[in-house]
Simulated assay, not measured.
Amino acid sequence: MTDQLALWTDDIKVTPKFKAFGRVESTYRTPSPEDFQTEAVDSLELTFEGIPGDRHSGITRKSGGREPWYPRGTQMCNERQVSLLSVEELGLIADRMELDDVRAEWIGGNILVTGIANFTRVPPRTRLAFEGGAVIRVDGENMPCRFAGAAIAARNSGREGLDLLFPQRAAGLRGLVGFVEKPGIVSAGQAVTAHIPEQWIYTNLNK
Rank of each mutant, 00 (worst) to 15 (best):
E39D: 04
D163M: 11
V177C: 11
P31F: 15
F18E: 09
L162Q: 02
T120E: 05
G184T: 00
P52H: 05
F18R: 07
G115T: 13
T30M: 12
G189F: 14
P16R: 12
R169D: 12
G158W: 14
P52R: 06
T15Y: 12
R127M: 06
G184C: 06
R174K: 07
G65F: 05
T38C: 02
F36A: 06
S86Y: 04
W69V: 04
V41S: 04
E67L: 01
N110Y: 10
F36S: 05
R137W: 00
W200L: 15
E67K: 01
G161E: 08
E141P: 00
V138N: 02
W69T: 06
T30V: 11
F48T: 06
G161R: 04
Q37T: 06
T126M: 08
D35Y: 11
G50T: 08
A148Q: 01
A94W: 09
R127Q: 06
G50C: 06
K19L: 10
E160L: 14
R159H: 12
D3S: 04
L176H: 02
F166A: 03
N118F: 12
P167N: 12
A154C: 07
P197V: 10
P33M: 09
D35A: 11
D100V: 00
L85S: 07
S57V: 15
S32C: 05
V122W: 02
M143D: 11
T74V: 05
A6V: 15
G189Q: 08
S63D: 15
I152W: 01
G73F: 09
R103P: 12
Q4N: 08
S83E: 09
S86M: 08
A6M: 13
D95W: 02
K182R: 10
R72S: 06
R29Q: 10
V122A: 07
V192Y: 06
G140H: 07
S83N: 13
S43N: 02
D35H: 07
M1E: 00
T30P: 13
F130I: 08
Y28G: 03
I111K: 03
D100R: 00
I196M: 12
P31H: 13
G64I: 03
F147G: 05
R55N: 10
N206K: 13
T114N: 14
R103Q: 10
E67W: 02
L176T: 08
E198R: 15
Y70V: 01
L173H: 01
